[in-house]
Nucleic acid binder design. Structure first.
Lengths: 243, 243
DNA sequence: ACTTTGAACTGAGCCAGATCAGTGTCGCGA
DNA sequence: TCGCGACACTGATCTGGCTCAGTTCAAAGT
């Protein structure tokens, strides 16, 4: 498979127009592909020798555990996303990464990554851009948890996920396949599983979205967008900034 | 002032050992210094021609506004921090930046920034690192809002701020000067101003911290760290990763 | 065919934190 | 010196979302 075809390369290409050299440097990062079963952490908090990964297949979540046992999912990653960048830049991981489904990912070693940055510096800028995009999502998530109520927050989450999946060709405006359980959802939204269940039922009864049987169906996009105060500007981009 | 002395250069130097060339490239970014009065936004949501800034003096906050009028402060920035990186990489700002005190900052134009990355690529990696550190803080903040109660969250916030200020020489283990009002605090913590006031009183009465008259005094660091479940690993680093 | 398991779902009661409606105090400009 | 706006602070009341204690349902195991 050439870099052009990987979702990761496509993503970076949206920011930096990639040369052949850069493409093949990206390709080389995909050398050591590995598979991970559901539930066993790929990276865990405090681990010092962790690698980064480029996600090819499946979903993972990054989360933090508090001493009291509560957990907060920070983000879900879908194919094309880069995982564990912070863990490698800091040498020690500050969060856990757990596969939500069976996962296929290319392992990227610190040295290889820094080496790639040295030889093809524009890729460093591109990765910086991708990291900023991830940060924008975390920020949006933060705002949601801080200031949106459970309905708005849930609606926003489902819309954001849909938009992201659509960008990598895994969903449409009317719905998408979603392997998340309600309790996973609750850990992401900062709610109890019980309350997530009620909110999902309300949204369904109001004819807005259905989240059932591993499938999300958006029935009334406009009202949902309005309810969630959703603005996908932070996911969008209009052509490479670096020619 | 040479790059060696700016807090920003010191911060980047902690990750990438900087050469003279890189130092002077950093220096050049400090050319256009500007001052900003309290309260008038330096950058606002949706703005398309915004610059980035390196903060030299004073405090700012980055926040988002929701349609309902609620606001969520995502982070405060202190001297040495880089502001508005996302706004320039995305061409359009997804958040507001407002001075909390009078501010002095160096304006960094997109072209100059990308140019600097091109000529001194290791600086791109260093900025990527700094951005990751900021993201780590946002993540910690997200976890706090999602899963910590008001007391823990407040305690954690005050400790994190203290640790950051200490790193740039503006505070000690026993306290620091803090120009934030309780209502600013409430917008950051996702609480009401009324409740922040009560929580601060409780923490004071329990002999943990005092937040009063623009001054934070830490009376019992150990108990505070325990209450907040605070682990400053995500702010720390032990020497340059890139020699 | 039966049990086990796990996720989805429900109702009742409770509490952390919001909202409302104030009072007190300082600093500042007219 | 008066008046006004910011900010800190308080008590009373309300409520969103949590916890507890279940039930239902479907899939997998024996």
């Amino acid at each position: 498979m050439t870099a052009l075809q990987t979702p990761f390369a496509r993503k970076l290409g949206a920011f930096v127009a990639l040369s052949d050299d850069e493409m093949s440097a990206l390709d080389r990062l995909h050398d050591r592909r590995r598979a991970f079963p559901v539930g066993r952490d790929m990276v865990h908090q405090g681990q010092t020798d962790s690698s980064a990964y480029i996600l090819a297949e499946g979903w993972v979540c990054s989360y933090k555990l508090l001493s009291g046992g509560a957990r907060q999912i920070v983000d879900f990653q879908i194919p094309g996303d880069f995982l564990g960048l912070r863990s490698v830049l800091f040498r020690t991981a500050d969060h856990n990464i757990e596969p939500v489904t069976r996962v296929e990912a290319s392992e990227v070693l610190v040295e290889d990554l820094l080496d790639t940055f040295r030889k093809t510096p524009r890729l460093a800028t591109a990765v910086l851009w991708a990291a900023s995009r991830d940060e924008a999502m975390v920020v949006e998530h933060l705002v949601g948890i801080g200031r949106r109520d459970a309905r708005e927050r849930t609606a926003h989450f489902l819309l954001e996920l849909g938009a992201r999946l659509k960008l990598v060709g895994l969903g449409s405006t009317s719905g998408y396949a979603c392997p998340l359980s309600q309790s996973l959802l609750s850990d992401a939204l900062g709610l109890s599983a019980v309350h997530v269940n009620r909110v999902l039922r309300e949204l369904r009864e109001d004819g807005l979205v259905t989240f059932q049987y591993g499938q999300v169906e958006i029935h009334d996009l406009d009202r949902l967008v309005k309810l969630a105060d959703f603005d996908m500007a932070y996911l969008d981009h209009d052509g490479p900034l670096l020619k």
